[in-house]
Amino acid sequence: MLAYLLRRLFYALPILIGVNLITFGLFFVVNTPDDMARMQLGVKRVTPEAIEKWKAERGYDKPLFINPAAPGVGLLTETIFFEKSARMFVGDFGRAEDGRDIAREIVTRMGPSLAIALPTFILGLFVTVSLALLLTFFRATYLDFWGVVLCVALMSISGLFYIIGGQFLISKLWKLVPISGYGGGPDAWKFLLLPVAIGVVSGIGSSTRWYRTIFLEEIGRDYVRTARAKGLPETAVLFRHVLKNAMVPILTGVVVVIPLLFMGSLLTESFFGIPGLGSYTIDAIQAQDFAVVRAMVFIGSVLYIAGLMLTDLSYTLVDPRIRFER
């Protein structure tokens, strides 16, 4: 298994370099260092000299990929790409364009992002799997029919509607929780309740339908018939046998997103005023802060690769037939 993991890590390197190159290329095509300087320095009383000084100060006056004027390895290292992107491979994300340390910001903001994403994920998974099992249990009855209708209705509604509707109904009309905000300590739960509830409800429709399909496929198999023939109650059939055997497709979709929970949610964080990584990314895009966007894309790629590896590992846990040895 170790050899497999090492091999996967080795494959990940060119992927990360590729992602880095594409991000770098795309950003510099639409956003030159001059543009960045102007965004940061504002529009009032900005002189060309100030722009040149800003670029020189941050190393944006160097060539993009190759520096013919630099001696030795400086040919490659004294370039914008190396200084701004290659360093991320050793965990050095540098500073945002406003001078603030990116790694520190990421660490600070990870907590609020996780505070929303983790309960939403766990609760959402529990609710949707339970509902899907319930619909499977009542398959071909009116409960199943109306359950599916409800799921289709829920998945047809935009995520933004859930947020605005939830804020209007629960916070504004019923005054049960704050509309937005974030607080640490014992007060944290009252800010998390609504975004978590909205996150769970908005995911019910699509996930429940997906899991129901998986369970329905499993429920027709021979081992289920055997289990029933043994006289097992239906709950035991569903929870002990069907759920276990349906784990591989479930894990395929679920485990891969676990590492990405760190990245936060762009929309939810923005509307609820959660100071997480989602709103950090949005702010950076709006401010054209290349340093932050680049760091977030890189971290996203790393986490996605980690998620894929975790998914592979999780298969071995739920299905003994899957092994990494040749």
């Binding site: 509309i179 937005s180 005023g273 100071p275």
Partner: peptide, 18 residues
């Protein structure tokens, strides 16, 4: 000073007196 990126929560919190 709390950060409110969206106008809707900002306005509603004002109406609630917050």
């Amino acid at each position: 000073f709390s950060r409110e990126k969206e106008s809707i929560p900002y306005w509603n919190k004002f109406l609630q007196g917050y």
